[in-house]
């Protein structure tokens, strides 16, 4: 594989209630092995995946939120969060457990348009 493509993973589901969030993260980690240009976008309920302070002992489910902090070590540094999605949920950048770039909906749409491959979860 020689040509580097722009991959974007679009995350729109809350964690735990469905398997999408965890599956997306696993695919992201696998994709990291192929040295592509990977971005993650968080929209709608997907922004909840990055909420600080998740404690899953009570639901007997693995808390995978710390894994987002490992992405840096996998050279995945482009995390984008849609501003409007945060605002609707009463969240701010300070509520998130990793450093992200906050984009408004227009900027987010533009960024999606620039990708070679978009995978939606």
């Amino acid at each position: 594989m020689s040509e580097i493509k722009k991959f974007m993973f679009v995350n729109r589901k809350a964690p735990y209630g469905t398997i999408y969030a965890l599956e997306s993260l696993e695919v992201v980690l696998i994709t990291a092995a192929f040295d592509q240009d990977v971005s993650l976008a968080f929209l709608d309920d997907g922004v909840y995946q990055l909420k600080k302070g998740q404690q899953t002992k009570g639901i007997d489910t693995k808390n995978f939120s710390p894994t987002f902090r490992a992405l840096d070590g996998y050279d995945i540094e482009k995390l984008y969060v849609e501003k409007e999605s945060l605002a609707l949920r009463g969240l701010s950048e300070a509520d998130l457990l990793v450093d992200v770039t906050v984009l408004d909906r227009k900027e987010m749409g533009k960024l999606m348009g620039q990708q070679d491959v978009v995978l939606s979860f």
Binding site: G53, T56, G58, I59
Partner: peptide, 30 residues
């Protein structure tokens, strides 16, 4: 803090609302 909060306050007058805490804790919102 979400845009739903106003609506929740409104409906609490007629229905009683409960929340399962282990699920709220899991999502970092306890």
């Amino acid at each position: 803090g979400s845009f739903l909060e106003g609506k929740m306050h409104e409906v609490m007058g007629k229905v009683k609302i409960h929340v399962l805490m282990p699920d709220l804790e899991a999502r970092g919102l306890a």
